[in-house]
Design a protein around this nucleic acid. Structure first.
Length: 202
DNA sequence: TGCTCGATATTCT
DNA sequence: GAATATCGAGCAA
């Protein structure tokens, strides 16, 4: 993966990220994940995007140059991670939804809090789980994924060679029918589809 | 197996 | 005040 590739239209870039390897290195050790599921968010044209209503302190990274990490905190409890794509000033991003842990499995299991009873496929199955397994939080917001000394790196690699499956994005209120979710067909680490359900108050 | 519910940052109304 | 790009514990059937 090169930065020039990430500068393209988000719907072209999103499937390219399938099968690529993301590696984090911290004092605890190294964890690497092969991406199996992503979603595209097309900045100002997409009512489901955090950037749809303009720049805020939280989403500022999406407005910068491509190849930087956008991390946000949601539901009072969870982190999710995106790769900023498109040229600077275009706030498009690809949400990383799921992956397969291929390096540092023991550390990932420890971070997920259950070293024995969960199978490996659940370690990074879902965007919040992916962040936990990789040790991602707001500290990593804005890091350059293509810099050699970065704590979070998108590695150069072949990526997924086949035809990705597509479908509606998960859990969105706005534009739930746009098929901007991409995943590797038949991969067991792809997260289950959950439609948006409005929260009920008492 | 399939539901309801809580955790509470950030943004929007 | 209310909704949200979520997850998993706890409970009913």
């Amino acid at each position: 993966m090169r930065r020039s590739q990430l500068a393209g239209p988000v719907l072209d870039v999103a499937p390219l990220l399938l099968g690529t390897v993301l590696r984090t290195t911290t004092a605890e050790g190294t964890v690497a994940v092969r991406m199996t599921e992503v979603e595209a968010y097309d900045g100002p044209n997409d009512p489901g995007s955090h950037a749809y209503r303009g720049q805020t302190p939280r989403n500022a990274v999406m407005f910068g140059p491509p190849g930087h990490l956008y991390v946000y905190f949601t539901y009072g409890m969870h982190f999710c991670m995106n790769v900023g794509v498109g040229p600077a000033g275009t706030p498009s991003a690809v949400l990383l939804r799921a992956g397969e842990v291929i390096e540092g499995v023991d550390l990932a299991r420890t971070r997920r809090g259950n070293p024995t009873s969960k199978s490996n496929r659940d370690l990074a199955r879902g965007p919040a789980r992916l962040c936990v397994a990789l040790g991602i939080d707001r500290e990593q917001d804005g890091v350059d994924l293509l810099a050699k000394d970065s704590p979070v790196r998108l590695l150069d690699g072949p990526g997924f060679d086949g035809t990705p499956s597509t479908g509606p994005r998960v859990g969105l209120r706005e534009a739930p029918d746009w098929p901007w979710r991409f995943w590797i067909p038949d991969d067991p680490t792809v997260s289950p589809y959950r439609p948006h359900v409005p929260k009920r108050r008492t």
